[in-house]
């Protein structure tokens, strides 16, 4: 028996909108730790890892570990039927081939349940080792989204370079080139507006903008984004989900031939 009651149901709606472009089908894993997901895109270039910790739910019952295969577009269709202020409860019985999403309006005058068919998915789980990153950049998520969108109108790839001076996003295409430098800026009114760079050593890596733009669908989940870079590793683009967990995107770099 599984029963997860999330008062801030809009979080789940936003999570689905953040990942459904990247991944079609995925297994949601439920354990005492929380509600989680790890899935790669079909070309094995990008990976999304989601964790919603059990403590973040108003009620969390998971009698035994359960993996539920879901089509994310279908799940998003159902969650779009929940109001932004609704409380969402996810329910499943052991051995069942369906999951139920229950939506309650804040004043309890409307209760809806949507039952969705589960699917068997052969998922490839990857072990992601803890890593020391050469550079970690934290910046406003909307600013990062704007940069990725702007650069993708010029080129297909972005070079992200971190130096003492700041973080530089560069692209080149048929019509020309573009460079956007964001300097460390801690003297802002609100901490979420700051750009903070922790650098052990300079790093420069090239990534496909198509994937970066897809990651920025998670922007509504968090005011800030953290970009962790190491010269020999995939980049991690992390959006923290307030008090509950995170959504992390990993992207393999472009490599010199």
């Amino acid at each position: 028996m599984l029963e997860l009651r999330l008062v801030q149901g809009s979080l789940l709606k936003k999570v689905l909108e953040a990942i459904r472009e990247l991944v079609n089908d995925a297994n949601f894993d439920c354990s005492a730790t929380g509600f989680s997901l790890q899935a790669m895109d079909s070309s094995h270039v990008a990976l999304v890892a989601l964790l919603l910790r059990s403590e973040g739910f108003e009620h969390y019952r998971c009698d035994r570990n359960l993996s539920m295969g879901m089509n994310l577009n279908n799940m998003a269709k159902m969650l779009r039927c929940a109001g932004n202020d609704d409380i969402i409860t996810i329910k499943a019985d052991d051995g069942s081939d369906t999951v139920t999403f229950m939506f309650e309006s804040p004043n309890q005058d409307k209760i809806a349940d949507f039952e969705m068919k589960l699917m068997d998915i052969d998922s490839e789980h990857l072990g992601i080792p803890d890593a020391e990153y050469h550079a970690i950049v934290r910046m406003p998520s909307a600013e990062f989204a704007r940069i990725c969108k702007d650069l993708s109108s010029i080129g297909d790839t972005v070079v992200i370079s971190v130096t003492k001076e700041g973080v530089k996003f560069s692209t080149a295409g048929d019509i020309g080139t573009a460079n956007i430098v964001c300097r460390q800026n801690k003297t802002v009114d609100k901490p979420e507006e700051a750009t903070v760079i922790e650098m052990q050593e300079p790093v420069s890596l090239t990534f496909a903008l198509r994937y970066m733009n897809s990651f920025t669908k998670a922007t509504p989940l968090s005011e800030t984004v953290t970009i962790s870079l190491s010269s020999e590793l995939p980049v991690v683009v992390e959006y923290k989900i307030a008090d509950m967990g995170y959504i992390r995107f990993y992207l393999a770099p472009k490599i010199e031939e």
Binding site: S43, L47, H125, L126, L233, P234, A252, K254, E257
Partner: peptide, 14 residues
């Protein structure tokens, strides 16, 4: 020239 890296080259399947 660059080519797209693959995550399986960095992380192991478990």
């Amino acid at each position: 020239d660059t080519k797209q890296g693959n995550l399986l080259a960095f992380f192991k399947k478990i």
